[in-house]
Write a protein that binds this DNA or RNA. Structure first.
Lengths: 194, 194
DNA sequence: ATTTCTCTACCTACTAGTAGGAAGATAAAT
DNA sequence: ATTTATCTTCCTACTAGTAGGTAGAGAAAT
């Protein structure tokens, strides 16, 4: 794990934190320029247009997420604990303000005015996250850990919405603890009586 | 119900629809100007600054919401149906795209870079909405309509997060039906067994 | 007659994006 | 080994357009 970060990665990193804070229209090349000490034009060398920058950024985010979720499924045996780990990840992100909001949740709220490239990336993220959650729920049901009222796919949508809604509430109230207070009962509800 | 809309109300109407579509940074005085056929400078006469415009807008939204929720509580006797009416309201808004997202949910996602006036208004809305939901849940519990796992206040937070998360999912997937598919089971879950 | 509204005309700061070149590293050709 | 050419990265300087906001004149309503 080297800490050498290429310029383009630094650009993506700061752009990501700016998007999480203020969305697509909430940041500019000048903001990135000021943050990493490089001229605006140099950013255009790495990412010709803003739409392309954000598209690459969301692509990277999706890949990181995919990798992270995959390693959760491989590293943790119990579906209940896989779900718990996913939620805990976001809980710490929100608590220490490292990534206090999902990039795609942020962009999804601006869906109507996003470049089509970015919009379809965001849809893709929502789709694969819902898919991961559904597969965890299905595995847990087959093993008797979970007892679901609805189909795994539908429960996954409900859970995903709760997580995103909880992020929003935590942000609105400025209270990181609210995230887990909302999400934890939603997970507990899925657990089969022992 | 008169259809005479003052200029300042027309400004607020179009600004609201623009905010719902793209957030605080997603619209400009020029956009409003083009939409209602008035010069930019004339908008500044009614609302000197953008922060003030949005602050008034959110104030009006809060008041409309307060009035609407109050009339639901007064016009409908059953708490379960009050809740249903609230959800149905949003379902139709999303379906016919008249107000396909809560103004305050939109702004909450941008909380970190909102003018303080606006931010506190948004917090206020979340607080009073959560309060309304909690009081409906409490009334329903006392009358035996609802059977809650947690305190009414906590269940209200969970429900509010589900509603906002469901709005986001519906928008992300471009599927209005997803809203009710997510929210309906969350309400059903609160119902006491007959 | 005064207040309310809308206008033209303008300002400064900032937006994304471009043109063209300089510095340095790398690779190829001599 | 040294020249030559190429590639990458970053720079200064610039463009056209848009941002929020202002000053002041002219209507319109009270």
């Amino acid at each position: 794990m080297k800490s050498i970060a290429s310029t383009s990665e630094k650009i993506l990193d700061i752009a990501q934190s700016l998007i999480v804070a203020g969305g697509y229209n909430g940041f500019s090349y000048a903001d990135i320029s000021a943050a990493i000490g490089i001229r605006k034009a140099s950013i255009h060398h790495h990412f010709p247009t803003k739409a392309e920058l954000v598209s690459v950024l969301v692509g990277r985010y999706r890949q990181q997420t995919e990798t992270g979720l995959k390693s959760l499924r491989e590293g943790i045996s119990s579906p209940a604990e896989q779900l718990q780990a996913y939620v805990s990840y976001w809980h710490s992100c929100i608590r220490d303000a490292s990534l206090p909001f999902c990039v795609c949740a942020m962009l999804a709220s601006e869906m109507q005015m996003l470049p089509e490239d970015v919009a379809s990336q965001v849809r893709g993220h929502f789709h694969s996250l819902a898919g991961w959650l559904a597969s965890v729920l299905r595995a847990g049901t087959e093993n008797g850990f979970f007892q679901l009222d609805k189909q795994p796919e539908e429960e996954a949508q409900i859970l995903m919405a709760s997580v995103h809604g909880a992020m929003l509430s935590a942000r609105a109230f400025g209270d990181p603890g609210l995230f887990i207070a909302i999400v934890a009962p939603q997970i507990a509800r899925l657990q089969a009586p022992d």
